[in-house]
């Protein structure tokens, strides 16, 4: 409750500062619209914004889901197989040297202007953080637990599923929390490069028509969606880990 109050307080303060900035600098509304105008636009264009927000949400959720599954699998493969580590890890690290943003035009070329190029962007941007957070956790299984399992006569795959994976779930959860914040970035960049739907597309469109109030409204919706996604993923992870431990 106090936390909710604090967050509301900070939000109110931010809006007041924003209004003060508009009032005292006298910036024209096509450069920096005031919060009231943006709120008004948010309300009048709610159907339009909601339609595009739905598309972006679908892209983000699909990218997050597929990326989480792929990251989970890759981390286990890397942790289980020294061969995979030797071959794939340098490739993974090298792939991180390529800015994902630079890939957006190529993805659009390959996958078209529809949902899939954006899903692929979101997926690419979260794949590495999820994989590496989970992989690191898998490699940090306490040696004594592994020794105990060996004395008990366990095979490597059962050690993986019954000890290493459950022990590493907190690492996977922290990867997912990061992914929840990164995935929308990927989807928006994908939309900027080429799209006919989505909040990123709407922002570009509004910008081009000097509807800065609409651009801000879309931006605020995007921020709220990202925060909500992060909170949902965080709550989900907490519950999962709590159910595991209590």
């Amino acid at each position: 409750m106090t936390r909710a109050l604090r967050i509301t307080g900070v939000a109110v303060l931010a809006v007041l500062l924003w209004q003060a900035l508009v009032t005292f600098t006298g910036l024209p509304r096509f450069i920096l619209p005031g919060p009231l105008l943006v709120a008004e636009t948010l309300w009048t264009s709610r159907a339009l914004i909601a339609e595009h927000a739905l598309v972006t949400s679908a892209e983000v959720l699909a990218g997050l889901g597929i990326g989480a599954v792929l990251g989970f699998g890759s981390a286990i493969l890397l942790a289980a197989s020294p061969l995979a580590r030797t071959v794939l890890r340098p490739m993974l690290v090298f792939s991180q040297a390529v800015p994902v943003f630079a890939l957006a035009p190529i993805l659009t070329l390959w996958l078209g202007y529809g949902l899939w190029s954006k899903i692929a962007m979101a997926l690419l941007i979260i794949y590495f953080p999820v994989t590496s957070a989970f992989f690191d956790a898998l490699m940090r299984t306490p040696g004594d637990w592994l020794g105990l399992a060996r004395v008990m006569g366990a095979g490597p795959s059962r050690v993986m599923w019954r000890i290493r994976v459950p022990a590493a779930l907190p690492g996977f959860a922290s990867g997912l929390r990061l992914a929840a914040v990164y995935a929308p970035i990927g989807a928006i960049i994908g939309e900027w490069v080429g799209a006919s739907k989505g909040l990123g597309y709407l922002m570009l469109l509004a910008n081009g028509r000097a509807k800065i109030d609409l651009m801000f409204a879309a931006l605020i919706v995007l921020a709220v969606l990202t925060l909500a996604l992060h909170a949902a993923v965080d709550a989900g992870c907490r519950r999962l880990l709590a159910a595991r431990e209590s």
Binding site: D144, A154, G155, R162, I163, P166, E245
Partner: peptide, 30 residues
């Protein structure tokens, strides 16, 4: 297969209850 080990640290898996920990060996051997 003829040795059991007990160490200073109890090495209990925090996500398993006591019964699960006690039967861990069997499940690790399938």
């Amino acid at each position: 297969d003829r040795v059991a080990l007990m160490a200073q640290s109890d090495l209990l898996m925090p996500w398993l209850d006591v019964l699960g920990n006690v039967t861990l060996g069997a499940r690790l051997r399938g």
